[in-house]
Simulated scan of single mutants.
Amino acid sequence: MSAFPLRDVDFDAAYQGKPLLKGSEVTFDLAPWDIGAPQPAVVELERDGRFHGEVLDVGCGLGENAAFLATRGHRVTGVDGSATALEEAARRAAKRGAEVTFVQSDATSLTELDEQRYDSVLDSALYHCLDDEQRQRYAEALHRVTAPGGQLNLLCFADIDEGLRFPMSVSQENLRTNLGKHWDIEEIRRNAYTTSLTEEAFVQVGIQALASMGFSIDPDRIRRDERGRILGPVWHLRAKRR
């Protein structure tokens, strides 16, 4: 069983520089997912023509992906449950001259979007933040607000050991089980997720403290980008709405 109880995660607190996990004293100077730019994997998806029409970035966080897609000419709505994240996302988007509609909503219901139908959906590191009951409701909610034939591109932490293991990592079987009822899964393949973490950051926070939360790191095997940022293994799922 994971040492990381998903329902005790407080993302709004993390965006305020407080502990990510309730009851923990572990904090990060910079949120592990805040790289101050769009995810390189999302940039590649856009270059490959994976987004069209009305685009929904669900779990948009600080809005870097949403702002990037908007600057590429897409009509984008960014959704997140954290008011703190959305306030900063709006500020960053304005700084980049990107027009994005930001909406605060629970991703497992998306009731604020009931009048909308999106052609493309991006989930960059949201799915693994939900437990299985929430994932099933999330799959249904996404189906409801997406147009028939709409495309889903989802990136989530993979149950692959590349020297870095996240406690929320999921299997391909989990993706198929929870999404397959509403989505025709076309492909699941391995990709990489760029974090703001460096090996030094892990040491600063404390390897043992992170291990108590379910994180593990093997310095000899981790992958890094050219800036020394640690790359985590993710699944990239492509699916079409039924």
Results as ranks from 00 to 15, higher is better:
13 A>N: 06
23 G>S: 06
214 G>N: 06
132 D>W: 01
131 D>W: 13
207 I>F: 03
100 V>L: 07
166 F>A: 10
190 R>L: 14
72 R>F: 04
197 L>D: 10
77 T>Y: 09
58 V>H: 01
15 Y>H: 02
102 F>P: 08
172 Q>I: 01
35 I>Q: 07
74 H>V: 02
152 L>R: 09
7 R>H: 11
42 V>M: 05
146 T>G: 09
186 E>Q: 12
139 A>P: 07
144 R>L: 14
193 Y>S: 11
44 E>W: 12
44 E>Y: 06
136 Q>N: 11
13 A>T: 11
47 R>H: 05
67 A>L: 09
188 I>Y: 05
76 V>C: 05
82 S>T: 01
147 A>G: 04
43 V>S: 05
112 E>D: 04
96 R>S: 15
181 K>G: 15
119 D>Y: 01
84 T>I: 01
180 G>M: 06
229 R>Q: 12
194 T>R: 15
130 L>W: 09
143 H>N: 14
94 A>I: 03
212 S>Q: 13
217 I>C: 10
176 R>F: 01
86 L>H: 04
40 P>K: 08
137 R>V: 01
44 E>V: 02
173 E>D: 14
30 L>N: 13
109 S>R: 10
204 Q>N: 12
161 D>F: 06
147 A>P: 09
51 F>Q: 00
115 E>A: 14
92 R>K: 13
191 N>H: 13
7 R>L: 15
114 D>C: 04
200 E>N: 12
